[in-house]
Write a protein that binds this DNA or RNA. Structure first.
Lengths: 129, 129
DNA sequence: TAGCAAGCGTTATATTGTAACACAATAACC
DNA sequence: GGTTATTGTGTTACAATATAACGCTTGCTA
């Protein structure tokens, strides 16, 4: 059972959940002007908390944020993202086998990963036609 | 056989090659003030070209750039990076097996990846002690 | 040698992210 | 309950990263 969210955290999460794609911190801010969000730090602080609790993800190659769609995402070692350059859709995937391969590499090389980023940029099935 | 590099491209590549870690675009710019580099676009244009030819990599989670150390890096489908949060060292790895797993996922899901990012943030062997 | 593509230098601006400060709300503890 | 530590808030100012746009040069190449 996670802690309850504060007002700002809930607002940011709600905005990301309603969006059908990744949003930048500043577009979240714009969406929430009317709700009392005035300045970047308010958004970034909420984002930071939501990231830590795993409710959202950050897409490093886009500098953007997305709500986690996978109900038991936290149970996965790594989460991968396939980002379509054409339609902007983002597919979140679990990659159990990839997890294992990465773990193997880590063990072989004595590296302890705290956070793993896997992002594919390309063209999704619908857009390929 | 690739084309020869222009002066700016060679300067940027040289700076990255001499560095013992990733550099931001702006620190490259600072390093090259004396060589005639005056403004961000000059650096970013050189970086773009070097990225396209595979001579350097961009670390998405750091907004930084690094010279490719792997002589036949282009032959790999994907390149992974393990970034030590303590010492800042970056280990480039090939991940043949991971490549294959990702390819499987792509095939299964009809996704055509043009660029793949794999970055591990954590602690390297020497720093763990 | 005319035309085109790529690169250059420059100015200005857009986008993304933090530092720092004073204060308020919440939770933890005796 | 009252005290204290922790976390979050609102704000101003600023740092760091990246791109748009313009006119010019260079080097092919047809």
């Amino acid at each position: 059972m996670g802690k309850a969210l504060t007002k700002n955290q809930a607002l940011v999460l709600d905005t990301l959940s309603r969006a059908d794609g990744p949003l930048s911190a500043y577009s979240i801010l714009d969406d929430l002007r009317d709700e009392g969000m005035q300045a970047p730090p308010q958004v970034y602080r909420a984002l930071e908390k939501l990231l830590k609790t795993g409710l959202i993800h950050r897409l490093e190659s886009l500098n953007a944020y997305i709500a986690c769609r996978d109900p038991d995402c936290v149970s996965h070692t790594v989460t991968g993202f396939a980002i379509c350059e054409t339609c902007g859709d983002v597919i979140e995937f679990a990659g159990e086998k990839i997890s294992r391969q990465l773990k193997d590499w880590e063990d072989d090389n004595g590296f302890l990963a705290e956070k793993t980023t896997i992002e594919l940029r390309g063209i999704c099935k619908p857009c390929k036609g």
